[in-house]
Computed example of a mutant assay.
Amino acid sequence: MDLIADILLVAGALGAGLYCFILARRLTRFNDLESGVGGAVAVLSAQVDDLTRTLAAAQKTAGASATSLTQLTARAEEVAKRLELMVASMHDLPPNQATSETSEPSAGPVFSRRSQNGFGR
């Protein structure tokens, strides 16, 4: 009886050893850096680092753009106020007499003759 128990114990130990060997080979293939999940994790980790750096640069650029846009908007509002004041002051000016005379159409073309010597009549 002890002999059968020892044979079964050795067979169980050999089976467990074979099972551990197979699991170890699968785990090394699973964690392989070139074709397994380990490679995918390494690639994803590198991409996350790149995206983090890109995001930081984009946030910095957006902050600078927002500051510049705020300054430009303030300048534009100041200029708009001055233009409104100028347009409002233009309504107070009297109409220009020279402008109204030249805007009327003339009676016809004006021709003058020159004499042979070039001094007029």
Rank of each mutant, 00 (worst) to 15 (best):
T28F: 14
L23K: 14
T73K: 04
R53F: 08
L44A: 09
E84G: 10
R29Q: 00
A58L: 00
T70H: 05
A62C: 02
P109V: 02
L93D: 00
D92Q: 01
M1W: 15
L8R: 05
T28N: 07
L93Q: 07
P105C: 06
C20P: 01
F21Q: 02
G118T: 03
A46M: 03
A58C: 00
S89G: 05
T73F: 04
T52W: 04
D32C: 04
G12Y: 05
H91R: 11
A66F: 05
S65E: 09
S45E: 00
A74M: 08
E77F: 11
D50A: 12
R75H: 08
N117G: 10
S35L: 09
S35P: 02
L44T: 06
L51C: 12
R75L: 00
D92K: 04
T52V: 10
T102M: 09
R82G: 04
G39T: 03
S65P: 04
T70S: 10
N31C: 08
A74S: 11
K60S: 12
Q47W: 05
S65Y: 02
R121N: 03
S68F: 05
G39N: 02
T99E: 06
S65Q: 12
D49P: 00
L23Q: 12
M86R: 13
A62D: 03
S106E: 13
R114M: 08
G63I: 00
R121G: 07
Q116W: 15
V41I: 15
V87S: 07
P94N: 09
P105R: 13
